[in-house]
Amino acid sequence: MNNSMDFLLWVKGPAFEIALFIFVAGILIRVIEILLLGRKADLSEARSSDVRAGIRTVLNRSIPESGILKKAPFVIIVGYLWHICWFISFFLFVPHIEVINYLLGISWPGLPNQFVDTAAVIAMISLLAMLIYRFNHPVLRFISTREDYLVWLVTFLPLLSGYFAFHHTFEPYAMLLGLHILSVELFLVIFPFTKLMHVITVLMARWYNGVSLGRKEPENQEVQS
């Protein structure tokens, strides 16, 4: 029988296994590739602890420097909005928490659906706004590659399909849910091969930046205003 329930069972079964495999193996390959490249020890005399500088940079880099906030408020504010709302939509929706709990055995309380729903809408609006900005800003238009647009689409689809599924916008529901899960699987599959990897490598990048530049900083670093 060729129906939406079959489709749902397929995306929750074999398709999910394939996506999970590519996601996990892909990330591991990428991370190991990076780590094994290694880096030379810095022989210059450090002014302050590079470990502390590394940790500081991992944390501090989330706070925009005031000058750049004034120069590019759109990217910063919408970027913040996007990340927070995406985080809420993904990590604080109970059906999602169930999946994480099933996969990793960890669980936490979710948010009421209206909040998650609102967050998802804001996340989608910010993504759309960023796409329009990307099309129009001279720098972003110039540096954007096909990958940027592909990643945009693959990031947008789970939100859109999730929103439709949550609101039962189309029938049957099993098809909507299946499409939603499929779009997430697409996200998982391209994740290790695109800039989506920044979710993981951002920690490494900030760390390396911190240890190489931070060791030159005075020990009692005042917080950048």
Binding site: L9, K12, G13, P14, F16, E17, L20, F21, I22, F23, V24, A25, G26, I27, L28, I29, I32, P95, H96, E98, V99, Y102, L103, L177
Partner: peptide
């Protein structure tokens, strides 16, 4: 729960980790 994957993810994750 309905949202859960319908497969032996642990086994698959194990293969993925080993391959990765």
């Amino acid at each position: 729960a309905l949202s859960l994957p319908d497969s032996d993810v642990r086994k698959m994750a194990g293969y993925a980790v080993a391959t990765g």
